[in-house]
Design a protein around this nucleic acid. Sequence first.
DNA 1: TTAAAATGATAACAAGTGATATATAACGAA
DNA 2: TTCGTTATATATCACTTGTTATCATTTTAA
Lengths: 193, 193
Amino acid sequence: MPPIPKFSKEDILNCAYEIVKKEGFEGLNARKIAKVLGCSVQPIFHNFTSMEELNKEVHQLIYHKYQEYMLSAKEKEDNPYKQMGLSYIKFASDYPEFFKILFMQKTNLNANDFVMTDSIGEDVIKTGQMVTGLSYEEQKKFHVKVWIFTHGIACLVATKTIQFTKEEIEELLAKSIKEMLIGYKKEKKNEGK
Amino acid sequence: MPPIPKFSKEDILNCAYEIVKKEGFEGLNARKIAKVLGCSVQPIFHNFTSMEELNKEVHQLIYHKYQEYMLSAKEKEDNPYKQMGLSYIKFASDYPEFFKILFMQKTNLNANDFVMTDSIGEDVIKTGQMVTGLSYEEQKKFHVKVWIFTHGIACLVATKTIQFTKEEIEELLAKSIKEMLIGYKKEKKNEGK
DNA sequence: TTAAAATGATAACAAGTGATATATAACGAA
DNA sequence: TTCGTTATATATCACTTGTTATCATTTTAA
C-alpha cells in the first residue's frame, strides 16, 4: 500500500558518511544531506528519530572503517605488528576527519576505544614479541612507547601538519622503532647490572 | 564627555579567554560573554567589529600563553631541551582546549606556528646538542623523532586519553628519549660500517 | 476503482547566534 | 546648567539548524 521509498536509510547514512568524511561533523546537518540527495528533510526524519541518532550511526560506520584498517593489518603475513602501526597512520592519512573524530576530540568518554587499549589485546603483544623477542611484560611496556610514537605521527598526518609520503613514513616509523628497541634493550641490560 | 566605560576591551577579552579555556571556541558566543560579564552584547560589538575579530584576538592570547610556557622552559638552567618537551606536555595538561586549538585542529593553515618549525630554531638544535653530543645535522634529524614522541604524549594528555601524573610523564619522556638516543647512535655506527 | 497507508514536499516553528537600530543615560566641556 | 558625545540596554532583524504539522502523492489490497 505505501509508495516505494525513494531514499532509503542506507542512502541517507552513506550520504552523511561522505559529508563527514570531507568536513567532519561540523559540516553535517539535515538540510545539507537533503540537498545532496536531492530531497527534502522528511526522508531523514522518517528514518531517524533525530539528528543525534543519525550522528551516532555515522559514528559507528566511522569506527567500523577504522577497524577494517586495523584488521587488515593484523592479517598480513609480513610483520603484522609493524603493519598495524602503518595502518593506523594510513587511516589518519586516508580519513583525516575520521581520525580526528575518533582519536583527537575525546575528552573523557570512550577510553575503551582507544588504540592503546583495544590494540593491546594478548594477540597484539604476542605479535609484537615475535619482532622484539621481549618477554610479555617487557613487550607491554615497550608497546606503549611505540604506540605513542605512532599516534604522534598519525596526529600530525591527520592535521596535515606534516605531509610525508608513504615511503617516508614507513622509513621513519621502521627506523625509529628499531632504534627504540635497541635503546630499550640496552637500558634494560644496564638496569640489570 | 562620554560616560566612563563599565566594560573594557580587556574585560571582554579576558572573559572570552576563560570561556575558551574551559569549553573551546565551540562554547564561545556573544551572549555568553555578556551573561558572564553581566552586561548586554553591546559592549562586545562596541569594542570589536565582529565576533570573528574577537576570536582572532583570543587566539593570539592563547598563542602567547603557549609561548610563555615554552620560553620559561628555554630559560631553565637544568637541561632546557628536556624542559621544553615537558613544558609542551604541561601546556597540553594545563590548557587542553588551548592545545587542541593550536595543534590538533589545523588543516592547512598556520604550518609556521607548528612546534616542529618554531622550535627548531638554531638555538633549540644547539640546546639539544648539548645533551646528545650529536652533530648539528644529526641533531636535527633526532630532534624530529623526539618531538613526534613528545607531541604524541601531549595529544593523549590534551584529550585526557591518558592521565599520567607529572612524575610518570617525566619518567616516560626522559627514559624514552634516552633510549631513542642510544638506538640512534648505535644505528648510526652500524651505517658507518 | 477505491481506500488505507505511508512517503515525501512545503512550509513553518523554535531555539540559538551574529549583528544592528533605537533609545537612554552618564560624563565632561562649555 | 546645558549640551554633545558615547557607553549601554532593549528590542529586533537575519540567518542557521533541528524538528514538526499539513497535505499531496504513490502504491496496492480489497
